[in-house]
């Protein structure tokens, strides 16, 4: 469980968050949605200790994020930012091995190697294992980063816009993998997503942010509602039922 209480983070601009309190359940996918500048990425960064908070507390699995040892936290929670554009020449295998760093500090034992192999197999990267990251497509690279996070073997996985730079096919593949991680391995996943239809189709619950505050938090099904969406995005978003799924039609 992730417990956020009275969290504030000011920026010199207005991209901050104000007095956010939130409880994110275990073993589920939770998506943060909202307009640009609503504070989605900021909230994720503060929760994951990438940014220091001004006020409030965050507890992940009972650990106070601002007081716990960073290395111990790295065994419990992982965070992947959208801008993991690396100019570092590493192979997929080497990158995934770094996921074991919090556990092994660089000296891989048999258990570490097993986890690395498993993560690579899970993300279907066996054939790319010896390839350098800079020779991969955007989708393959994204999968390699997820494999690294899997090798890190944390109960909580936070992803900032994991679908950025991915085409439709790879976006669907990515979301299916995340769904499997939750359903099969019981991971707790928190995402920042831009596309509300992806959020609707794959999340268990959705947190809508607006102007640095939580505008609404609920099960995915109840959040995909014209009145709720109108309140978040300030435009009319008709919701249709297609093949038993709610789909937002926000294009015109």
């Amino acid at each position: 469980m992730i417990e956020v209480s009275r969290l504030s983070k000011r920026y010199n601009g207005n991209h901050g968050i104000r007095d956010v309190s939130l409880t994110i359940g275990k073993g589920a996918i939770t998506s943060f949605i909202g307009p640009n500048g609503a504070g989605k990425s900021t909230l994720l960064s503060v929760i994951s200790r990438l940014l220091p908070m001004d006020e409030g507390t965050v507890r992940i699995g009972g650990m106070d994020v601002s007081k716990s040892d960073s290395r111990e936290l790295a065994k419990v929670v992982s965070i992947l930012k959208q801008s993991n554009h690396l100019n570092v020449k590493l192979t997929v295998g080497e990158l995934v091995e770094f996921g074991r760093f919090p556990h092994s500090a660089g000296r891989l034992n048999a258990e570490d190697r097993r986890q690395v192999d498993e993560a690579i197999r899970y993300m279907e990267l066996e054939e790319l294992r010896g390839k350098h990251l800079d020779n991969l497509s955007g989708g393959q690279r994204q999968r390699a980063f997820i494999a690294m996070v899997l090798a890190q073997d944390t109960e909580y996985i936070l992803l900032d816009e994991p679908l950025n730079n991915l085409d439709l096919k790879h976006s669907v593949q990515m979301m299916k993998v995340l769904r499997r991680l939750t359903d099969e391995l019981g991971k707790t996943i928190v995402l920042v997503l831009h596309d509300i239809n992806f959020a609707a189709a794959y999340s268990d619950s959705i947190v809508a942010l607006k102007d640095g505050r939580v505008a609404r938090h609920g099960a995915a099904d109840e959040m995909i509602d014209p009145a709720v969406l109108q309140g978040i995005y300030d435009i009319d978003i008709p919701v249709h039922e297609l093949g038993g799924r709610k789909v937002c039609v926000y294009f015109r």
Binding site: S48, S70, F101
Partner: peptide
């Protein structure tokens, strides 16, 4: 410190994620 320098070369958020100081 070879591994730590490699990780640091991947940026601050990457390093913090792996619990590196």
């Amino acid at each position: 410190f070879a591994d730590r320098f490699t990780i640091a070369g991947m940026g601050e958020s990457f390093s913090v994620n792996l619990g590196l100081n």
